[in-house]
Design a protein around this nucleic acid. Structure first.
Length: 698
DNA sequence: ACCCTATTGATTTTT
DNA sequence: TCAATAGGGT
């Protein structure tokens, strides 16, 4: 593609806009910089950082001060660090890392905030248990509420004395669970009629007790209760163990900063420049914290510059501040950039119509034509075949190859897995007990591109595949499998044996392959290096296939009851299905998480493509997206020509959310964009025409 | 026929 | 976690 000469006049305007930012930096004017998709937003952010270092670096250095750059993800942190180059003066990190770095040293204050939070939580829990009139909550706790007061106390006493019994039977089917308790609970009629609600009641009682105990220990200055800890790996707090997660870290930070002027002073003394990337995804609590610092710094000697870089139209996560930024952080100078450096004009026209606000982009290039956009709809049946046929059509038409890829966007990870060819891997993991219980972990632990996020079993299988790939690839240096120290101590004969052993790992399925590894292990002689290799790969008691199997079973089916034959049979069946999957399918999974596609066609979720750009994009759409969003896209198209006529506020909110997701998806495309809508579109054809001009049948 | 309870199977994403 | 559905009991 040749996006030829840049339009001179536009380039001048663009640099004038950048100079506006520099001017604000010098004058300590807080600002929000909005630029649509493909405008070069991150470029502007990095230019600003460089400017601060060039112009004010010496002063910052002398005062032992630095610049804060906040990103939304760790990946973005690394990206900016590498583009910026090494600079001692600029601290690039996620908001969580930065805040924890600032507040974690104030142990005593943190514990105080924590204690008052525990008090609030206890109050809320009691309110739910006893008085909250919200229908859903009142129903859940009604059995407890109906008990006379003295019964309530007795019930609490009983249940607190039987925690073990309770948790041992927690996962049993309702009838069995009931049977365990019915005799003991005679005195409390109907309390366990509904097992689901019973568990809700008991969990709340336990929680209140835990929190009370925690407060006591804090007051007693118990050694384990002197510090609050933050763990970024999990999504939930465990407050009574002094452990907080992401959201609570933000909440505590804001509270501490609000309360202590001295801390505000320390922060603005140390960090006079704060630049925030992707502000639309930033939690409102963070904005509130920034606004609090900004107000404090007014009229102080050490001035503060805070700036937000982002695009409200690309806000696709619910807990981001989105378009409410200026309601929280007032008096921001607004700078918009109306240019697009990414896409052909045909794409820009469409994404301008989708975003439909005051940021209408112009291409910065003189000759920016040559792209194409088309909307297709097809009937509902045989959706999978329709998608395959559609992809095939454009595979041919666009001459797709490894060097000219086609990127296909679908809504769910399940479909991504199916289309990418490792549907059985996804399906088997999804049906295991562990991933059923923690159903929201499957996508992170199985499909994440960040290897450190893989789950325990996916990670083990990944390592096996990694070894398999390394052995198969003739050019692999042995140093990628072993560290050099081990190799340098190897005799020639030992090396020969090692290579022979490695070459005899084989099998068509995961079971066969792993089995062959353990067979070689058993056959090899005592000091053979292959033994050490197997031992570093697996963390087992002893090295047999059976140990491997039991290990998998234990992790994927934790707490399996040894008396429950039915459950055991089911577990074995699914685990067998899992390890009997062809190695070739696992290889597709391996290639997917390593972004190693060699077919030319790559599948993504809409959400997962944020920040990326591709020449050729196919978007697969449907009416629905999940349970909560029935008719999400059909409703969007019905209202798209006149969104103001959508009366209710929550409907307008939904419309905005859908619009943003659609905008993000379409704006990934540089050159070619096709949309395949897999439901009947006749009732909202006007909306489709409004954006795409026309549509075709497929 | 109705009410209540148990079971089942799901959207996306980050820290 | 939670809505939808299946199924049991009266």
């Amino acid at each position: 593609m040749s996006l030829s000469i840049e339009v001179e006049e536009y380039v001048e305007t663009e640099s004038a806009i950048q100079n506006e930012i520099f001017k604000s930096i010098n004058n300590f004017e807080d600002l929000v910089y909005t630029a649509g998709a493909g405008a070069g937003k991150t470029f502007a952010l990095i230019e600003s950082l460089k400017y601060i270092v060039d112009k004010h670096g010496e002063r910052l250095s002398n005062h032992n001060q630095s610049v804060i750059c906040i990103t939304y993800t760790n990946a973005a942190t690394n990206e900016i660090k590498s583009r910026l180059g090494n600079s001692e003066l600029v601290k690039v990190s996620t908001i969580h890392d930065r805040l924890w770095g600032i507040i974690s040293i104030h142990h005593k204050e943190l514990v105080l905030v924590h204690k008052s939070n525990l008090d609030c939580e206890i109050h809320d829990l009691n309110n739910n248990l006893l008085t909250n009139h919200e229908e859903k909550i009142a129903n859940q706790f009604s059995a407890y509420r109906k008990l006379p007061d003295d019964s309530k106390a007795k019930f609490c006493e009983f249940i607190l004395n039987n925690k073990d019994l309770y948790y041992r039977n927690y996962d049993k089917p309702a009838a069995e669970f009931k049977a365990v308790f019915t005799n003991d609970l005679d005195a409390f009629p109907k309390i366990i009629n509904n097992v689901t609600n019973f568990k809700k009641i008991v969990n709340v009682i336990y929680k209140i007790e835990n929190y009370k105990h925690c407060i006591e220990q804090i007051n007693n200055n118990d050694k384990k209760y002197l510090k609050v800890r933050y763990d970024s790996r999990y999504n939930n707090d465990i407050l009574h163990r002094m452990l907080i997660s992401h959201d609570t870290l933000l909440k505590y930070s804001l509270e501490i900063v609000k309360k202590h002027d001295l801390l505000k002073q320390i922060i603005i003394d140390q960090f006079p420049y704060i630049l925030i990337d992707e502000y639309q995804d930033t939690n409102p609590i963070v904005i509130e914290l920034m606004a609090c610092l900004a107000n404090y710094s007014k009229g102080k000697e050490h001035k503060l510059f805070i700036s937000y870089f982002g695009d409200t139209a690309q806000s696709i996560y619910d807990d981001g501040v989105g378009n409410k930024l200026q309601g929280i952080h007032k008096n921001l100078k607004v700078i918009n950039k109306p240019f697009n450096r990414r896409s052909n004009v045909e794409i820009i026209d469409v994404i301008n119509k989708i975003r439909n606000d005051d940021i209408s982009q112009l291409s910065i290039y003189e000759d920016s034509g040559g792209g194409s956009v088309k909307f297709y709809s097809s009937e509902t049946e045989n959706k999978r075949e329709k998608i395959d046929a559609f992809i095939h059509k454009y595979y041919e038409q666009w001459d797709i190859s490894e060097n000219n890829k086609l990127h296909c966007l679908v809504l769910t990870n399940k479909l991504v897995a199916e289309l990418s060819g490792f549907q059985d891997v996804y399906a088997c993991f999804s049906s295991t007990s562990y991933y059923k219980k923690y159903y929201d972990r499957i996508n992170t632990e199985l499909l994440s591109n960040e290897l450190s996020k893989l789950g325990e079993i996916p990670s083990l299988i990944y390592k096996i595949l990694d070894l398999e790939v390394a052995i198969k690839e003739p050019s692999t240096a042995l140093t990628t499998v072993f560290n050099e120290e081990i190799l340098s101590n190897l005799t020639w004969r030992a090396l020969q044996r090692l290579i022979k052993h490695l070459k005899s790992f084989s099998g068509a399925t995961l079971r066969e392959y792993v089995n062959s590894i353990f067979e070689i292990y058993a056959k090899s002689e005592k000091g053979d290096f292959v033994k050490g290799l197997v031992r570093t790969l697996f963390d087992l008691n002893s090295y047999t296939f059976n140990d491997f199997y039991i290990y998998m079973l234990d992790r994927l089916y934790p707490n399996l009851d040894s008396d429950d034959n039915e459950k055991i049979e089911e577990a074995n069946k699914i685990l067998c299905d899992l390890i009997d999957i062809d190695l070739s399918q696992y290889a597709l999974w391996y290639r997917f998480i390593n972004n190693l596609d060699d077919t030319g066609v790559v599948y993504h979720t809409y959400h997962g493509t944020k920040g990326l750009e591709f020449d050729n994009v196919v978007i697969v759409m449907e009416n629905d997206f999940g349970r909560m969003n029935k008719n999400m896209f059909s409703t969007y198209f019905k209202n798209v020509a006149h969104p103001d006529k959508v009366l209710k506020e929550n409907e307008l909110l939904k419309h905005e959310n859908t619009k943003n997701l659609f905008y993000v998806s379409c704006s990934r495309s540089i050159k070619n964009l096709r949309i395949l809508y897999l439901d009947d579109t006749s009732s909202f054809q006007d909306g489709i025409n409004h954006i795409f001009g026309e549509s075709h049948a497929f």
